[in-house]
Write a protein that binds this DNA or RNA. Structure first.
Lengths: 222, 222
DNA sequence: GGCGGTGTCGTACCGGGGTACCACGCACGG
DNA sequence: CCGTGCGTGGTACCCCGGTACGACACCGCC
């Protein structure tokens, strides 16, 4: 039987978690806390297997509570649950010793799987954060023998010279009107070119085209 | 509709994956490959959204195939699936550019959720590996950007934390609607934030903001 | 207590961006 | 000589982005 403590400042949120967890016959909720201080106290009292920990709570927040729980050396695993998948405290939560990080809009099954995973000593991270985690850290690791200077990005090969020129100025932030003026074209012509560039590169709008221009090196940061 | 390519040297394994994926009405299998070379070729031919990539295959293995697919610059995401959750090649796979790493004994639902996550641009890592990943790396990593030891660009100093967050996602090409959804805000709120970011940074539209995000290093090229 | 900063949400308006569809001239190669 | 790709141009339409107003709640600080 996996024992769980719920730490969240919203009563309805706690209720929802409790209902979900209690519906499983291998889990039981041994306590609730509405702030970090209370969470730390409850962990010391009940030694749950897992704490569902919200980040934003009045007083002591979830991060600091996690840090104290881990520092206390308990066997308790902390699974951070937050509404904000871009919360920059996510890293801090994991560094504080949390075993996982999930967002509240996850499917109930995902949450349950997450609880079971951390209870078993594994760790879980929401896909949206995993992506950033990998992007941020993986590449700092030992040399990736990435060969080949790559002469031209394949996403650009289908473009004609004119279209590549258009993409370049799009990447420099020019509006259609500016492109028309500076390249001595009609605005309708510019629109035609831009439309074809977007179609060929598979980008949905000029914003994505700007990003593509930077990512492919067609335009370089100042 | 998410298009998937299956790369595995075991025919029965491919069959199982195909049955599972085809049972979903938002997925379709566009090809199969029994080795790395074939996988690279099939990706070039079909440009699938996702490749289910086994590591151990005769000839070109899954890691090297992943490296080549990513190096080719395709939009295709690679999701590595292996029997061995302790396979030390896992890191190499992620470093090679894979968007995820799952083990074959995962529940079918987990696999499907993983495919959908990577198709959406997110990333997934099996809980058993996530634990090792965090243990290995998180604790000795550079501080979060929020700590910002790096001298901040003066054009960004006037921004609040929230506004800087908004600028970051603008730089990643998100539309106002997407920002609202993923950050759980009303679109009107997003517009307010965006408007203030543009005013404070002196940029005329989000295009210029994207460029600023790249130029200041707030967003880095892929 | 009051006051400013921040974050949130709303309505209304307008212009530019993007698409769809079509058209014409030119250069090139089968 | 005619098809095809490319560059150029036009019209009509719709939607998103950006602005201009508001409004309210929370919080820290004077």
């Amino acid at each position: 039987m996996t024992t769980v403590l719920i730490a969240d400042d919203q009563p309805m949120q706690r209720f929802g978690f409790r209902m979900l967890l209690e519906s499983q016959d291998d889990m039981t909720v041994v306590g609730e806390a509405a702030n970090g201080t209370e969470a730390v106290r409850q962990v010391a009292a009940h030694h749950p297997d897992v704490v569902l920990m919200d980040i934003r709570m009045p007083g002591l927040d979830g991060i600091e509570a996690t840090r104290r729980i881990i520092a206390a050396g308990a066997r308790t695993r902390v699974l951070i649950i937050t509404t904000f998948d871009l919360d920059e405290y996510a890293y801090d939560g994991l560094r504080a010793g949390a075993s996982g990080f999930l967002v509240k809009d996850a499917q109930p099954e995902e949450l349950l799987a997450g609880v079971r995973a951390v209870a078993a000593g594994d760790a879980v991270v929401a896909p949206s954060l995993t992506r950033r985690l990998l992007d941020t850290y993986i590449h700092h690791l030992p040399p990736t023998p990435r060969a080949a200077p790559a002469p031209e990005d394949p996403r650009l090969t289908s473009l004609t010279d004119r279209e590549r020129e258009i993409l370049t100025v799009i990447g420099q932030g020019w509006t259609n009107t500016e492109i028309a003026e500076r390249l001595h074209l009609a605005e309708s012509t510019v629109k035609t070119h831009v439309g074809r560039v977007l179609a060929k590169t598979g980008t949905r709008d000029r914003i994505q085209a700007v990003i593509l221009a930077y990512d492919t090196g067609l335009v370089k940061p100042a």
